[in-house]
Every structure is written in structure tokens, then in C-alpha cells.
Design a protein around this nucleic acid. Structure first.
Length: 574
RNA sequence: UGGGGUGUAGCCAAAUUGGCAAGGCAGCGGCCUUUGGAGCCGCCAUCUGGAGGUUCGAAUCCUCCCGCCCCAGCCA
């Protein structure tokens, strides 16, 4: 038997608990057979900046709701303000949505596609006496609007005749009026407690060239007028937006009630996403880019989708995250640890393991033959055997991680120290016999070790217990690579939490990026392609950056591995 | 006495609409481990912003109080 839309269990990823309130509303609408059982949503970005993970929440919501209820989701650019919008952003937005894995077929629309229709609707309102041209200055309009606690008062031009309004509106459209000389206003109620209803502006004069319509128009509709009409023209059934538009809803409905449109979509508001240690406002992100605090919109530290992509985030992890945080109406701040958890969860299953030494310390294995090289077997991903195996060259001189040796090992440190034995992953047990220091600085230059030939592959039959396992790389075979270590862009959980007089950039983390130039990677990494993701054993997940050139590979750290030793170390210190 | 929202654990967030507080993250123990990764097991709200009330029974209903968020663009 065919499934009805209402039978669909949403949120496939999650347990079968209640639907979020939006899916609940839609299900009920469907039960009552509203909209002929159709569900059409839309994602309406303004092309004035890059998409960030907050938009991803809206994208995932709109597209997955549409899919779950067998409807569709439109992509519509809300391009009603040519002074801020650019083609560059349109292209970037499309690329980002596709990267997330969504497809809008041919339902790609622009509010500007509807400018003619929207204008006609405006004329209708004027004819009904529900809109008028106001020649008050913008300052005067603000004064007349009143305050939060005091009613506004009517503009002296509020009662112009329909004929005069019509001719004035036409003059606005024809470019016969100066920018700022007048606006078209809805005639609603200057005493409303809801300020949005105090005769809001519908059209303003902007003598600016538009990325799509060029110089065809010199008046542009305001969001509050264009949005409900665009939704209605596309027969959107559920228009999902963020909480700050809640008190615009009466206006949204007012316009649609006054006009006879093909549909009257239902606007539903949900809480926008906030994440700890992160700033998610286009204005602030633009500021970070334009003031050079980051290297661009796609800087791997940015929460933009292009930044996350370059950093190495998988689209899958972002979608899982968006589903896991839920959709509700209370303002919330999600712990960035949840995002990182979703990332690791995905990468753990999909990323090949390789060995890379970030801060090398030379180890000479005294009892290993000088010229001998062995090719040792290594599994690519212990989570998934089907990802295969590779070999790694082993020889007398290797690098290990500097922090894996300690002259004075603290309690619970079970890595290398003089007289101790550890396992080299996939290779042999080695014991540290002596160390060589720089006479002047006292720095450790190299370690002398011996290996146990019976421990080939990393184990022995005698059941000897070896606690530590280190990653390593053969010096003669290693390739030198650059590694960029990233950390949170902001020092404070809430970057907006500032002392009086300073701005959010004072909370920037000065150590959000650390570049390590001379790292040594196992030779198999030679074949890596830009965008490939790996787990550097015991270090974290890394992604080959597009700045990589033939002479220099650059890896971005996507996220570190959970590090329980770091916690132990911290508790020992305190 | 401006309007609109919202309060469930450190952070998100459910609770089939009055039936006895899911789940995830974080944290904490333990097991396991050729990654101090992963995995596995256990613990983590006598209680839903507060105070009253209705009821056999309240996070859900009523009353009052408190906190937090949004709105005074010719931005979206």
C-alpha cells in the first residue's frame, strides 16, 4: 500500500521521538488537506554575503522537510536591494548549497523575476486606498513613527487621492523623483503596538544597477512587501524563517489578505543557530574578511560553508549536526563540541589513516642493519577493512613525535623514556637506550634505541605488555609537508561578551592558526589530491588544501582527535 | 497596562496533548584496544524559571510573579 504523506516519519537520522514543531504543523495541515496535500518550501538567501552554517540549518530544514513530505524546495534569491547584492555571491551560494548535496532542479528563482508583478500588486493597493506615496523625509518618517511605547501619528500625505498616488508612483518608477524624495507606504495603522504595522515602506527609490535587472528599475520593493508576494507567486505552502520575523507576520498576512494572490503561504518562525566560540552574522563575517582578520570568506577558520569546506568538513557531518540540534523557538547556543563530534563521527568511518610526524625527533635504531629497508603492511582504516591496506617503509633512522619522549616521564605517561619500551605502529618494539643533547642548548637532538626483531608487525608471542604505541616515519623515505593547525577563531564562548567600548574582534584568538612547515609524512601521501581527507594517526583529521603546489603539500587540520592524555596531563598539573 | 516571543540537566532537545521527565553532546567511572582514537558498559533532573491553585494524578490546565530574546532601516 502506498504511504500517505502524513505517515512519513521525519528525521530519519534520529530516534522516533516527536517531530519538531514545524513538521508537526505541516503534518496537521496535510491531515486537514490544506494546499491540496502539497508541501512547497523555499530557501531565500539575500546575495549579499556568503552562506554560513547558520544558513545550513535553514537549508537542511527546508530541503529535508520538502523531501520528507514529497514536496519540493525552491531556491529563491531575495535580491531586492541592489546596493548590497552581487553576482559573486549568487554563484557562491549556489555552489555551497550543491556542496551540501541539495538540488532545486529548475526551481531557481529571483525576487527580481517578479518585479513587474510586485509593482502591479502595489498599484492595486494604491487603487484600494491601502497604499500612498509619502513625501516626508526619512527623518520625518522616523519621527512620525513614534516610539516603542508611544503611538505614531499620521503623515500629512496619508490621505492623498488615489489619482495623485498613482501618478506619483508612476513618477517614482520612471525615475522622475530623486533618491530619497519619497516612498510608497502601506496604509495600515500608525497607532499599532506592532511598529511594523505603522504604515511600513513598500518601495524606495534606489538609482542603482541591479545584478540581474541592470538599470531597468530605479524603485525596489522592501522585504516586507516583496517576500510574501514572492512566496505567494511560487505557491509556497510553508514559509520558514527566523524568529526576528515573528512580528512581521501580521504584515506578511496583511498584504496577502488585501491582494488576491495565487496562494497564502503560512509563515513559521524558528530560532536561528548560534554556536559557541563562533560569530554568525553576515555583518560580522564581512567585517572579519574586509578588515583582514582572516584570509577570505573561505578561510578555514570561518564558519562559512566555503570555509568549512576548505577546512575539510564533510557535508554529511554538517547535515547530521543540523538534524541533531533540532528545531525549536527558544534562543539557544549550541556547544561547538557537538559539531566537532558529528565531524569526527563521519571522518572516523571514512578517512584513511596515515602517519605524519609534526614535530620530529630523530631516532636511530642501533641494532637495525644500516642499509636495510622493510616494507611493512598497514591497514588503512580499522573501522572498515574494505578500505584496504598499504605498505610503509621502515629503516634504521626514523622520526617520532617530539612530545612522545620525555626525559622525566610524569606518572601515567606511557610513551618513550630512557630504558622504556614502546611499540612503533605497524612496525617493532623499540627500547630507548640513550639520548644525545646539544652541548650548548641542552636540547635533545636524537635518541638511540634498540629494536626487538621478534616484534615485527607490532606484537610478540611472549605476551609482553607494551602500553604505548607511537606513530613514526622513516627519515629516508619521508616527504616534507606543511601542516596548518587551526583552533577556535574566538577565545570566548560568547565572542560578543565584551568589556565596554571594545568590539568583538578583541576576542579573536591570536593563536587560531599555527603553521608548521617541516613535518614529515609517510610516502604514500604523495598521491593525495586536493580535498582528500586523512586521519594522521594519533593527531587528528587533515585535508589537503588547494594552496598545495607541486613543491609543497599543505594540510589543514580539520579537527583534532579526542585527547584523553591531554586531560590526564592537565589534571596532573593542577 | 507598547507589541511579539521564550524559559525542561553544563549545552541542545523530546515527552503520543493530564498518566508518573526520551535521546544526543559535554562530564565522570570502568572494560577493551597495535591510535591515550574508535568501540562497549555504567553514572549524570524525586524533577520542568518561582509561588500558589485545580485534580486521584500537572512540565502539560488556572492565577500571580521573575528572567531572557526581538522590534522604532527608505536593510533582509
Amino acid at each position: 500500500m502506498e504511504k500517505k504523506n502524513t505517515d512519513i516519519i521525519a528525521k530519519k537520522d534520529e530516534n522516533l521521538t516527536g517531530l519538531d514543531f514545524i513538521r508537526e504543523i505541516i503534518r496537521n495541515d496535510l491531515k486537514q488537506n490544506k494546499n491540496n496535500g502539497q508541501v512547497i518550501t523555499r530557501f531565500p538567501p539575500e546575495p549579499n554575503g556568503y552562506l554560513h552554517i547558520g544558513h545550513a540549518k535553514a537549508i537542511v530544514l527546508n530541503f529535508s522537510v520538502a523531501e520528507e513530505f514529497k514536496g519540493r524546495c525552491h531556491l529563491r534569491f531575495d535580491d531586492t536591494n541592489p546596493t548590497k547584492e552581487e553576482m559573486e555571491y549568487i554563484d557562491a551560494i549556489k555552489k555551497d548549497i550543491r556542496w551540501l548535496g541539495y538540488d532545486w532542479d529548475d526551481h531557481e528563482y529571483y525576487a527580481s523575476d517578479y518585479f513587474e508583478k510586485i509593482y502591479d500588486y502595489a498599484v492595486q493597493l494604491v487603487k484600494k486606498g491601502k497604499a500612498y506615496v509619502d513625501t516626508l523625509t526619512s527623518d520625518e518618517i522616523r519621527e512620525y513613527r513614534g516610539t516603542l511605547t508611544q503611538a505614531g501619528k499620521d503623515s500629512p500625505y496619508r490621505n492623498r487621492s488615489v489619482e495623485e498616488n498613482l501618478s506619483l508612483l508612476e513618477k517614482m518608477r520612471n525615475g522622475e523623483m530623486e533618491e530619497g524624495a519619497c516612498v510608497l507606504r502601506a496604509r495600515i495603522d500608525m497607532a499599532s503596538g506592532n511598529i511594523n504595522m505603522r504604515d511600513p515602506s513598500m518601495y524606495r527609490i534606489l538609482k542603482a544597477s541591479h545584478p540581474k535587472t541592470g538599470d531597468k528599475w530605479c524603485i525596489y520593493p522592501m522585504y516586507d512587501f516583496a517576500h510574501p508576494l514572492s512566496d505567494a507567486i511560487e505557491s509556497i505552502t510553508h514559509s520558514l524563517c527566523t524568529l526576528e520575523f515573528e512580528d512581521h507576520r501580521p504584515l506578511y498576512d496583511w498584504f496577502l489578505d488585501q491582494l488576491s494572490t495565487p496562494a497564502h503561504p503560512r509563515q513559521i518562525e524558528f530560532a536561528r543557530l548560534n554556536i559557541t566560540y563562533t560569530v554568525l552574522s553576515k555583518r560580522k563575517l564581512l567585517h572579519l574578511v574586509s578588515e583582514g582578520h582572516v584570509k577570505g570568506w573561505d578561510d578555514p577558520r570561518m564558519p562559512t560553508l566555503s570555509g568549512l569546506r576548505r577546512r575539510g568538513y564533510t557535508p554529511e557531518s554538517i547535515k547530521v549536526f543540523c538534524n541533531r540540534i533540532g528545531v525549536a523557538k527558544s534562543n539557544s547556543v549550541v556547544d561547538i563540541a557537538l559539531l566537532e563530534h558529528c565531524l569526527r563521527e563521519d571522518l572516523n568511518k571514512t578517512a584513511n589513516r596515515v602517519m605524519v610526524v609534526l614535530r620530529p625527533l630523530k631516532v636511530i635504531i642501533d641494532n637495525y642493519p644500516d642499509e636495510k629497508v622493510e616494507e611493512l603492511d598497514a591497514i588503512n582504516n580499522p573501522e572498515d577493512e574494505s578500505m584496504g591496506k598499504r605498505t610503509i617503509p621502515f629503516s634504521k633512522v626514523i622520526y617520532i613525535e617530539r612530545e612522545d619522549f620525555k626525559e622525566d616521564p610524569p606518572k601515567k605517561f606511557f610513551r618513550l623514556a630512557i630504558g622504556r619500551e614502546v611499540r612503533l605502529k605497524h612496525a617493532y618494539y623499540i627500547r630507548c637506550e640513550s639520548i644525545v643533547k646539544d652541548e650548548k642548548t641542552g636540547d635533545i637532538i636524537e635518541l638511540h634505541c634498540t629494536y626487538d626483531p621478534r616484534s615485527k608487525g607490532g606484537w610478540t608471542e611472549d605476551g609482553r605488555k607494551v602500553m604505548g604505541t607511537l606513530h613514526w616515519v622513516s627519515t629516508a623515505h619521508a616527504i616534507k609537508v606543511q601542516v596548518n593547525l587551526y583552533d577556535h577563531l574566538f577565545l570566548k564562548e560568547d565572542p560578543e561578551n565584551l568589556p565596554e567600548g571594545s568590539d568583538f574582534t578583541s576576542n579573536l584568538n591570536p593563536r587560531s592558526m599555527e603553521i608548521i612547515k617541516d613535518c614529515f609524512a609517510e610516502p604514500s601521501l604523495k598521491n593525495a589530491q586536493v580535498g582528500d581527507r586523512f586521519q594522521f594517526l594519533r593527531q587528528g583529521y587533515f585535508c589537503l588544501d588547494p594552496d598545495t603546489s607541486s613543491g609543497r603539500m599543505i594540510f589543514n587540520r580539520i579537527v583534532n582527535l579526542r585527547d584523553s592524555w591531554a586531560k590526564i596531563e592537565k589534571s596532573i598539573l593542577s
